[in-house]
């Protein structure tokens, strides 16, 4: 067996508010392979965002280990002023700091340091095309709909071609068809490029395109029973009417 791309092992995290300790994550463990599209369901304040931040290596956990591609992300997150791991993409929400910026420039922003402008633009165009948003290259943030903004932010997150893309509630504020569009793009990204995608959603139907589903509540992560033998799940629960 290949080792997983990302693995969280007994990760715990609590926040203190005054004298009150809130346990946000309680010994959470999971693994993610390359090319896997995993979704975590959680209600409001269930700790989804904290889990994603720890998985992205931008926030340290209190105990447990986070390993990404063989690298210890916890100690990385503890380093002061650390920025995002170069092989992890985070889907942001904020628009560009300059309202008049063209989206091609904005998507290319993370690339401008290592690359020449032309090369950065080429990759940005490719990222936009991958999510079917290449027509937005010349548009400006304030002209975009919510769905278009979401696509642009995904494009920016994948422009560096990371091994892992992390998205916190990527379908926020979208209609059903728009949601399905965004979700199918995320699945395509995972399947076509081998990028692992980890997302958190507050709605179970938005998990339908994922390969793996999990749920998080009260610091506990719950995973399905037959993760490795999905094809074997044939016994449909009986007595459905009784469960209502």
């Amino acid at each position: 067996m290949n080792r997983p791309l990302l693995s969280l092992d007994r990760v715990s995290k609590s926040y203190w508010r005054g004298r009150h300790e809130t346990l946000v994550l309680d010994e959470v463990s999971f693994e993610l392979d390359a090319g896997e599209f995993a979704a975590i369901f959680g209600q409001r304040a269930s700790g989804k965002t904290t889990l994603l931040r720890i998985a992205a290596g931008i926030e340290p956990c209190d105990s447990g280990s986070v390993t990404f591609d063989g690298e210890d992300l916890v100690s990385r997150a503890r380093r002061r002023g650390a920025s995002l791991h170069p092989r992890i993409g985070w889907m942001r929400r904020e628009g560009p700091f300059l309202p008049s910026m063209e989206m091609l420039d904005y998507v290319a922003l993370p690339l401008l340091r290592p690359l020449r402008h032309e090369e950065a633009h080429r990759l940005a165009t490719r990222a936009l095309r991958r999510i079917g948003a290449d027509h937005l290259a010349r548009a400006r943030w304030r002209e975009l709909s919510n769905a278009e903004r979401t696509l642009v932010m995904i494009a920016q997150a994948i422009v560096r071609e990371p091994a892992l893309l992390i998205a916190d509630d990527p379908t926020m504020g979208l209609s059903t068809t728009e949601r399905e569009d965004v979700l199918s793009h995320l699945r395509d990204i995972a399947e076509d490029t081998g990028m692992a995608v980890l997302m958190a959603v507050p709605d179970v139907p938005d998990m339908l395109r994922s390969h793996t589903v999990m749920s998080l509540s009260d610091g506990e992560l719950i995973r399905p029973t037959r993760r490795s033998a999905r094809a074997d799940v044939i016994e449909f629960p009986r007595g459905r009417g009784e469960s209502a």
Binding site: T177, L208, R209, H211, V213, S215, P224, T225, R227
Partner: peptide, 25 residues
């Protein structure tokens, strides 16, 4: 309750396996 929730996730995962392309009514 955990096991019950797991069972729910099993069902959801079962339903995910055959999700198609983008929704186009």
């Amino acid at each position: 309750t955990r096991e019950e929730e797991q069972a729910c996730l099993d069902r959801i995962e079962l339903l995910t396996s055959d999700a198609g392309g983008p929704l186009d009514p």
